[in-house]
Write a protein that binds this DNA or RNA. Structure first.
Lengths: 198, 198
DNA sequence: GGCTGAAATTAACCTTTGTTAAGATGGGAA
DNA sequence: TTCCCATCTTAACAAAGGTTAATTTCAGCC
């Protein structure tokens, strides 16, 4: 059995007291997806409503700016969820692109199928709430960091909180997630370096 | 009957086909709250889990930075929801302060009570999903604006999309929500003014 | 080992923002 | 009306970020 299933089954047990044996109706509708490094999972304009649990690897969600540059909205990695939120929440074509940064393994479910399952199995409902709340919490934390911290502080924040992530992801994606350019991030790193030594 | 109740009953009907007559179990647990301008709704450190629908007025959620300054996370107004998210999602004391910018009328429910109601009346569950998704959507949109737009563009965005709001809220709160200082916002306004005339 | 291309760094220059402090503005209270 | 106080504006300077382009680094590949 996949690691993801075990992790999610444990979550279901903790949230709703559902035993692994009783999760078949849900997991029979899921599907393992493997992506190569750099492969696109959801492309701009896609209307598919996908929700996925990341078993292995890092996913990147980004938008194309009016000038053509990419802007990374967020990165998600092992044990986190990723969802085509434009399509799921507003039923509109995705303005964002979801792409694997490394070889990625996902446990995927179609959101429409999930809704159908939840209709007949409302006991899984706590899982949906959990996912939504976790995404909301992470989003609010990002907003908080944008209004309370300088770019340099945001980078330090990442370094202390998610050192592993910073090491696995090219700086240019980290930079755009922090709302700055790669050049500026490079200067910040230099500044911190000399500060640390002086 | 309050405007909020009517609005929420209509929402429940649209989302779940629930008739206004069948909403008593939910609305009997709600309570109207009136706040004066500048009055605090939820203070820093509070553990109360509150969810409220704004009938009238504007609420501001803000954090106190390490240097003592305030940083506005977001503003919410008529027909929107506000929630003590630290307490609700993580059961921890609120790092944020929720305060009325104008005289405010809220329709409030304790989140623990709501959970109890949802246990016995799962037919209201779509309402919780709706609220969570709407908050998530708004949050992601803010993150998007931080990574794709400059402060000037973010301000223009607000002006075109929420002109009424910008007019009702002191500039300093708008500025901090945009991640900049009031001085900088003033300069942006000046710049736009001369651009518009030139 | 040497080549290649993407990523990161550095440099130079310009624009924007932060900071601090001094005016200007304007609404509400006495 | 006048005073008061918070808000907004302006100014001057320092610090930081954006842009462009050249250079360096380095992992992957021949």
């Amino acid at each position: 059995m996949s690691t993801s299933k075990t992790a999610l089954q444990q979550l279901l047990f903790e949230l709703a007291g559902i035993l692994p044996a009783d999760t078949a109706p849900l997991f029979s509708m899921t599907r393992m997806v493997k992506l190569e490094a750099n492969e696109i999972y959801i492309r701009e304009g896609a209307t598919t409503r996908r929700l996925a649990f990341i078993e292995q690897g890092i996913m990147r969600a980004y938008a194309i700016k009016t000038n053509g540059d990419e802007a990374t909205l967020f990165l998600r990695w092992e044990e986190q969820f990723i969802a085509s939120h434009d399509a799921i929440i507003h039923r509109k074509p995705s303005r964002f692109i979801y792409r694997a940064l490394e070889p990625v393994t996902l446990l995927e479910i179609d959101y429409d199928v999930l809704e159908a399952v939840l209709k007949t199995h409302p006991e899984y409902e706590p899982l949906r709430n959990f996912v939504l709340m976790r995404m909301l919490s992470e989003s609010l934390q990002m907003i908080e960091s944008f209004v309370t911290l300088s770019p340099e502080e945001r980078y330090l924040n990442l370094l202390t909180g998610r050192f592993d992530l910073v090491n696995r992801v090219p700086d240019k994606y980290i930079a755009s997630m922090l709302g700055i350019t790669p050049v500026s991030l490079s200067r910040i790193r230099k500044r911190l370096h000399t500060k640390g030594k002086g």
